[in-house]
Nucleic acid binder design. Sequence first.
DNA 1: ACCCAGGGTCGTC
DNA 2: GACGACCCTGGG
Length: 292
Amino acid sequence: MKIYEKNNSVIVEDMKDFDPKHIFECGQCFRWNEEEDGSYTGVAFKKILNIKKEDNLVYFNNTNLEDFHNIWYKYFDLDRDYSKIKEELSKMDKYLNEAVKFGYGIRILNQDEWEILISFIISANNRISMIKRAIENLSMNYGEYIGEYKGKKHYAFPSIEKMNSLTQEQIRECGTGFRDQYIKDTTFIIKNDNEDIYKYKNLDTDMCKKGLLQFCGVGPKVADCIMLFSMEKYDTFPVDVWVKRVMEEFYVDENLSLKKIREYGINKFSNLSGFAQQYLFYYARELGIGKK
DNA sequence: ACCCAGGGTCGTC
DNA sequence: GACGACCCTGGG
């Protein structure tokens, strides 16, 4: 893997296990959007980044080597050997083998805990397009302006302080629906009980989940997502409608509870559960597996 | 026009 | 544990 900077871009040669479409459309993030040229533009950690893959080159546009090493290397989990993970999962069974082949370029992002906490509270009983819209509105109305790219203005996700200053109505006007109160209550707990969301990743998975469940609007599934997508907890297995469908299709009886499906997944995939879940989710959703 | 589902959670029983 | 309600809206 060769990395170099050129004209406000960082170019990486021969990058393995990295496909922008797989990464940004496997349901782990909500702030990345496809451009007309097939590239993806997104906002994270108050930076605007554009990514385009061409043959054996990956272009990280609108950035430099310093940010690449300080921010994006960790964000895209580039230190982890996904070939090894895929190899281990592939030999478990034929279904996972197919799912891994399908989403070969997936990487699990290391996103900001606060942003992911609120984002996945919004995700409950909601659709991805609606979730993205609500998060975009919150950022546009109450987030810090961070610049313009390809003719579009971009805003950071609102800070804890800013969110805490909003009324329930202001939050709802962004399109959160009935989750407005959850967001308000959760933000209040973090701000006024001095609850440090950034210390959670230091706890073991069980304690971490226990802590997250205290927040309003955070149930078992949302807690699993927060841990997996922002706290490096990979021995967890978020079960949503799609994972339920694909698990019932390939592994378990119907009428098994969500909790039991989660236990089954963690027992079967152990410390690779989170990765397995993500390959299965992307596979199921893209192919519509189990949908009626 | 009407109905339904969407990366579930909460309150109640 | 099981059940219904829940803001909103695109798609059937």
